[in-house]
Amino acid sequence: DVAEQLTPVLLDGLREESLQLVSKLKDSSSSCAVDVSAVWWEAAGSRELCVVTACESSVSLWKPLASDRWGKVYTWQLGEIPVIQIVPLPETCNLVCIALGDLEIGEIRWLLLYSSENDSFKQSLVKTGNIKAVLGLKDRRLVSSSRTMQEQQVEIVSLSETGRSKDGQTLMPPEETVLAFAEVEGMRDALVGTTAVNSIVVWSVNLKTGQLLKKMPVGYSYPASICHRAYSESGLLFVVLSHPHAKESESCGNPAFRVIAFNPKTARSTGVMFSSLPPGHAGRQGDVKDASAAAVLTSGAIAVWDLLLGQCTALLPPGPEGSWALARWATTTACLLAGQGDGTVCLYRY
């Protein structure tokens, strides 16, 4: 039934051809896929793009073999707390970060793919607490927000080449809980976050200070917006937001992503581009890289958008083996990782 409903959209040639299946990997020992990601692995002078898969109790590293096949290199066993997500670290080799917890993140761990000290794969604890949001940053850094009954802590930690955590930097927290972070591209010292009362906050994160520079309202029509990407251009701060709880309207359809331009000097903003869910679809769990967004819809399909055009450019229907459960960009938007609940991961060229 679902496949029939999707047929009219797939007949649009652009959408049909814009995703090409490259290869597939299946973890026969896993039946509980939680997340998937890509990571660069450097060993013996060569660098390969590897795939990391997570199920509740373990995380596995896969490397490419000949003929589009994949081989499992190593599996980290994680103990009693379930894995919730893989946290990618941009432009970083041989390092994966994972978040563990029950209803919310209770623990963050580094997984080091290869340690030159003793030729081993190892893991170490980075942080514990009631962690509300976490993001991997450039230069082997990680930012997180966590809450106690009294206060919120926003902290950046960094990791040395040998896998040891360096001293952290504390950022000035806003009053409301921070739900998501995004680095401002091209501005090493600027970081933004979205909060539970729908504000964008901007920090300066240079070595000396963690000042909260500005708080700007997103608008009441889009509660609990999540920031995915931020960049500064012509004196404006552009932020890509998703709206998991926005209501469908006749004029706008069902909003999935918006690009909003903020003037940080005045805190005023204006919508730049708007991307809706395909007609008849609901629900999303999104991933944004550059100007491309991907999300799993409740129908079990994966949708891909060009955020600058505000258009859905590809729709991957549920396969014969079942619904899609995960959609993540690899290190670039040239490669989409599409995961099913049974541990199957398909790599698509976009």
Binding site: M187, D189, A190, V202, S204, T209, Q211, L212, L213, K214, S232, S234, G235, L236, L237, A261, N263, P264, K265, T266, R268, S269, T270, V272
Partner: peptide, 23 residues
Amino acid sequence: CSESDLGPISLNWFEELSAEAPS
């Protein structure tokens, strides 16, 4: 969008806000 909608725009907004922020 026009400048009048968003107010006066500064290319150096980050440096200016950093200088204004209490340390």
